[in-house]
Simulated scan of single mutants.
Amino acid sequence: MTRVLSYNILAGGMTPCPGEDRRTEPLARLISAVQPDIVGLPEGLNPRREAEKAVVEELAERLQMTLIRGDHPTAGDEFQVACLTRLPVLASRVHVRPGVLTRPVLEVHVREEDGNELTVFVAHLIASFHKGRAAEHLRQREVEAILDIMAAAHGQPHLLMGDFNALAPGEALRASALLRYVLYLDQTLPSGESHERDGHPHLAYVLPDRLRPLQPLLAHLSRNRPARWFIDALAGLYVPRKSISLLRRAGYLDCFRHLHPHEPGFTCPALMPAGRIDFIFASPELAPRLRACQVVEEGNGVKGPQASDHLPVLAEFAPCATPAPTREISTPQAFAALSSL
């Protein structure tokens, strides 16, 4: 059985707010509780604190896993992806698409315990919720680029996981919970640029420009139980959902929704869950092996909000019935060998 965890650990496990420490301990305890073989980390690296030892380096040591970094200079100070695995790493590659991908996509090729090979892609799509449909258009372009990247793995088992900052068609959004969470952060976290750049959302980043004048009214309504239904219904009609549709039409299986057609499966914010934006997608070759998928709310005495603002998603894949022959990786597509990382 191969266990895969997708986990946005918030700003590389570093929350640069006064009085808050690195979150290595709660993250290590929660991750170890589910014993994953592979962990995809959409916000695994924090370039804004590159002078310090990365939390993911500490996690790799604590969990006895190999760290593969997905950072690249073109992403600037954006939080960047990483991957941890206890499986043998055959190769890895960082895919950069300047002008299309806000953050690079990390590709990791591993050998599973049954001898088969599996390719894992870790991605983090743009948020910019305040831009509404314009942001969704950007996410669509990112998904199209990711599909193009994954085309090289066509015919071979592979998966895509990460934080997509998007909802699937037909899924609920508890916008009132998200609004209350952001207002809570605005009241409890320091104001200023450091607050706005530490990975925590703030109201100006979530609320569309044309709704800004309604901020006091929305804040009042978010505390009124009957009014919350109205806010949720209105937001549900407004939020675009085309990015996830692109992956579904390309044949990728939404692991959680496939096994849990009626459960919300909300992953963010962990403190006041409002929507499901963290996904694990299995390729058509891998999908028949899917056995379980769940949102992890706590583990080893650590509750989700103590470790990050996202809840992790865990998927389990059964061994392949027939071991596949070793696939040769051609030089033109060659990944950066692990020894060169």
Rank of each mutant, 00 (worst) to 15 (best):
L41W: 14
Q64C: 15
F129V: 06
T119Q: 15
V313Y: 00
D209G: 09
A33E: 12
F230P: 12
L90F: 13
I31M: 09
I38P: 06
V110W: 08
T188S: 11
L101Q: 05
V296T: 04
F129D: 15
A91P: 00
G12N: 08
C17W: 15
L84K: 01
V81A: 13
G251F: 03
L338D: 14
L179D: 11
A153F: 03
E285I: 01
G251I: 01
T85I: 01
I277Y: 13
C255F: 00
Y205R: 05
A75P: 03
F266S: 14
L67K: 14
V295T: 00
P104Q: 11
E112M: 09
V4N: 01
A168E: 04
S128F: 02
R93Y: 06
S6N: 00
S245R: 07
A321S: 11
E297G: 07
H95T: 00
Y252D: 10
T24D: 13
S128H: 10
I146K: 05
A151S: 05
H95K: 10
D37H: 11
D37W: 02
I31N: 14
V143P: 07
V89N: 12
N116F: 10
Q156L: 08
H72I: 01
N46Q: 00
F121L: 15
T267Q: 14
H95G: 03
L179A: 10
I9W: 15
R23H: 13
A219C: 03
H137R: 12
R249W: 15
T85C: 00
R139D: 12
C268N: 12
L84N: 07
V39A: 08
R111Q: 14
E142H: 05
F281T: 02
A337K: 02
P226A: 09
H158L: 04
A287F: 06
L341I: 01
L189W: 09
P208D: 00
A60C: 09
A270Y: 10
S32D: 14
L101S: 15
P169D: 03
G155F: 02
A168F: 03
L30T: 08
I38W: 04
R97N: 05
P284C: 13
V122Q: 12
V105L: 13
V56F: 03
T331M: 11
V239Q: 10
A282V: 07
P288S: 13
A233D: 05
E112T: 09
R29D: 15
A82Y: 09
L338E: 13
M272Q: 14
P36Y: 07
R174D: 13
E193S: 03
M272P: 15
A11H: 11
E25G: 12
R248L: 10
G44C: 03
F79M: 05
R249Q: 07
L237Q: 12
V108K: 10
R248D: 12
A337G: 09
L27H: 14
A75D: 00
E196T: 00
R276K: 14
R180I: 01
S6Y: 00
L234V: 14
V296R: 06
M150K: 01
R197P: 02
L203V: 08
V100F: 15
F164Y: 10
F129K: 13
P323L: 14
H137C: 10
N8T: 00
W229Q: 04
V295H: 03
P157Y: 07
H202V: 08
R174M: 12
I146N: 04
A175E: 09
E112R: 05
P18L: 11
L125P: 09
N116K: 02
D114T: 04
V96A: 06
